[in-house]
Design a binder for these strands. Structure first.
Lengths: 120, 120
DNA sequence: AAAATACGTAACCGTTTAGTTACATGTTAC
DNA sequence: GTAACATGTAACTAAACGGTTACGTATTTT
């Protein structure tokens, strides 16, 4: 089971496009070393390492020292757990409540965007 | 389709336990007004409103003015879209690559936690 | 019309985030 | 053993986050 704090870490880690891209790259190239990964981004290697630290905190990455290099591996477990919670918790809602959303969308149009303008 | 910026907003919005709880409450009590929601939290109403703004930015909430009150509604669409992307993008990986994760976990234990200690 | 209610805006504050540069450490290659 | 290489640490900065209090505005209620 995933605690609040862990979910915070996972969602926050995923809440950044660079980090999501890092995950994608590591997922595609398991065992890639830090420098090689960093070279794919236009920020400094240090910035990349900080992102990697965030991803490791969230347990989305695992790393392994290999000589002077450090190899990176993707870990899907936290995403799996969140996925499980989401599907159990939201699937029923998705099936049942979409009508309401539609209703709201229609209402917004009827009201001449009065609510829509408040968003963003 | 969900752009990087939108995904950032959704994940960041979900990366906070209070905001997730707000979503749960609004999902369970569609049309709840801001004040009633705020009374369920021990931070100020202003703080709650800021959280609501974040959730609306991410399109996870929709609101509707009703007299002097504002009614809140949950919107599952962004979560649905992320869910779809996740399942298509990660489901294959989950099936195939868990052996590697297991391997890494075992390696860590064999190496007497040498890598494990680096995490956290 | 005045008071109470519900929400919104402004200004401020401490902490975290995301980045930088400079330097240090450990490992491989020559 | 020195040089080159790959990673790590420290110190700093600007902006964003998450919170506060004080005040303003719009809508009911009495």
């Amino acid at each position: 089971m995933l605690h609040d704090h862990d979910m915070d870490a996972v969602f926050q880690a995923l809440g950044n496009a660079s980090r999501r891209r890092m995950l994608d790259i590591v997922k595609q190239q398991p065992g890639i070393v830090v420098g090689a990964l960093a070279s794919e981004f236009d920020v400094s290697r240090i910035a990349v390492m900080k992102h990697l630290a965030v991803l490791e905190e969230a347990n989305l990455l695992v790393s392994e020292k290999d000589g002077r290099a450090r190899r990176l591996y993707f870990n899907a477990v936290p995403i799996q757990m969140i996925h499980e919670r989401w599907t159990t918790e939201y699937s029923a809602y998705w099936a049942g409540q979409l009508t309401r959303i539609k209703y709201i969308a229609e209402t917004r149009h009827r009201d001449n965007e009065s609510v829509g303008k408040q968003r963003k």
